[in-house]
Amino acid sequence: MAKELEYSATLTGASFLLYELKQVLKLKEQGLSDFEIKKKVIEENLFDYKVTSSLKRIIPSVIRRANTLDVFLKELVMNSPLEVGKIINLYAIMKTDKLFFEFMNELIREKLNNNNYLLEKKDLNLFFITKAEQSQKVAKWTELTINKLKQVYIKLLYEAGFLTDKKSGELSRVLVDEDVKRHLKDVSDTAYLKAMGE
């Protein structure tokens, strides 16, 4: 479980990034170290970004996500259909971001379990208000940071397939690939499966 993680707002600068994750995994396959990957991505602009400062900001998050995946999951991200990669990427985001995991586990899971397929603004507001009451760190974040995180969370849900429409907030159940499901159970990561409504 992600107990050793602290709350962080790094997702404001690093959203879904599945394409970027695949690029980093390719470099890892070639035996490059995290430092070499970071250097190569920035020097050769491997993500094709217009601004290199964006690269410097997001590459640590992408490397962190890549490092949470074992050989089996890395293989699936590289060689499976896009939908499978999306779910594994979402799992990696939850493993590296405590607050987003809690958002999935406490809010999205509950809604899916209750067959409530509507994510409203008030749900997001209540989630962040509750977290600010529970954590001094979250309480110190500016309104701008909180609003940015809300936007990122909506975007992540949409890109992973849990949100069919960003405007209406209509949620959808995502089918987790059987191999992924079995593997996460085998490695005792069922908490993340449950957070995805499984």
Rank of each mutant, 00 (worst) to 15 (best):
A2Q: 11
K3I: 11
K3W: 09
L5G: 07
L5M: 02
E6V: 11
E6A: 10
T10F: 12
G13Y: 07
A14E: 05
F16M: 01
L17G: 01
L18Y: 00
Y19D: 03
V24F: 01
L25F: 06
L25H: 07
K26N: 12
K28I: 06
K28C: 07
K28P: 06
G31C: 09
G31R: 03
I37C: 04
K38R: 14
V41P: 04
I42V: 13
E43G: 06
E43V: 03
E44A: 10
T52H: 13
L55Y: 00
K56D: 03
P60F: 04
N67E: 10
V71W: 13
F72R: 13
F72H: 13
F72W: 11
F72N: 14
L73K: 06
L76M: 15
M78V: 04
L82H: 15
E83A: 14
V84R: 04
G85T: 00
I88R: 05
L90M: 14
Y91A: 05
K95I: 04
T96Q: 07
K98W: 02
L99I: 03
F100I: 03
F101E: 02
E102L: 14
M104N: 00
I108L: 07
E110R: 12
N115D: 15
N116C: 09
N116P: 01
Y117E: 00
L119M: 02
D123K: 05
L124Q: 03
F127C: 02
F128E: 00
F128P: 00
I129L: 13
T130D: 10
Q134C: 08
Q134F: 09
Q136V: 10
Q136G: 14
A139V: 08
E143T: 12
T145K: 11
L149E: 01
K150R: 12
K150I: 09
K150V: 04
Y153M: 01
F162K: 05
E170S: 13
E170Y: 09
E170K: 15
V174Q: 06
V180N: 01
K181V: 10
H183L: 06
S188P: 05
T190A: 15
K194C: 13
A195N: 05
A195S: 12
